[in-house]
């Protein structure tokens, strides 16, 4: 739609997507000790998805499923400790020594963040679908505002 006819924008977004996804993954994992976290990661992925939608590029399309998976992960992280007799949402920290990489410390906060990410991306997809963005991207010139072409 708005940008799909401009080769510069298309190419730019295509080129920027992989690094942006890497930044998102970094934020997701770094979040526990550095600035970042599941919400920020979700927003970065969401931005990628939104830009790709604007440019009419391929992108994930399953808003419901992503949200369902996200909530399922979060609910499991919340409820599993109860089965082991701990409190709701009790945090488990695991640290592993891996050769080359050194000591890696993680915990149940990571899947929790992953769930948050999935829900945020799902929400953005839902908003994009709700705004009719994919249809706009496919529609011929008649629907497009003239100046935005």
């Amino acid at each position: 739609m708005i940008a799909s006819s401009s080769p510069i924008v298309r190419l730019g977004i295509r080129a920027a997507s992989p690094p942006a996804v890497m930044v998102g993954v970094y934020l997701l994992f770094a979040g526990h000790n550095q600035p970042g976290g599941g919400f920020a990661a979700g927003l970065v992925f969401g931005a990628v998805v939104a830009l790709r939608t604007v440019a009419g590029l391929q992108r994930p399309s399953r808003a419901h499923e992503l949200m369902a998976i996200g909530i399922l992960i979060i609910a499991s992280v919340a409820l599993l400790p109860i089965i082991w007799g701990d409190a709701l949402l009790d945090q488990h920290v695991v640290s592993v020594d891996i050769p080359l990489l050194g000591k890696i410390k993680t915990g149940s906060a990571l899947p929790f963040d992953l769930g948050v990410t999935a829900v945020v991306v799902g929400l953005l997809l839902a908003v994009l679908d709700g705004l009719g963005a994919p249809e706009l991207a496919e529609e011929p010139a008649t629907l497009r505002p003239r100046s935005l072409r």
Binding site: G31, H32, G36
Partner: peptide
């Protein structure tokens, strides 16, 4: 088990709030 206080608050100390917020987000979507 993390150095980022903001994130630990979100995922551990006040994780129930986050859980609620996530459900709200999904409902809004």
């Amino acid at each position: 088990g993390g150095n980022n206080i903001v994130n630990v608050i979100l995922t551990d100390m006040r994780a129930l709030d986050t859980l609620g917020e996530v459900v709200v987000l999904a409902t809004v979507a």
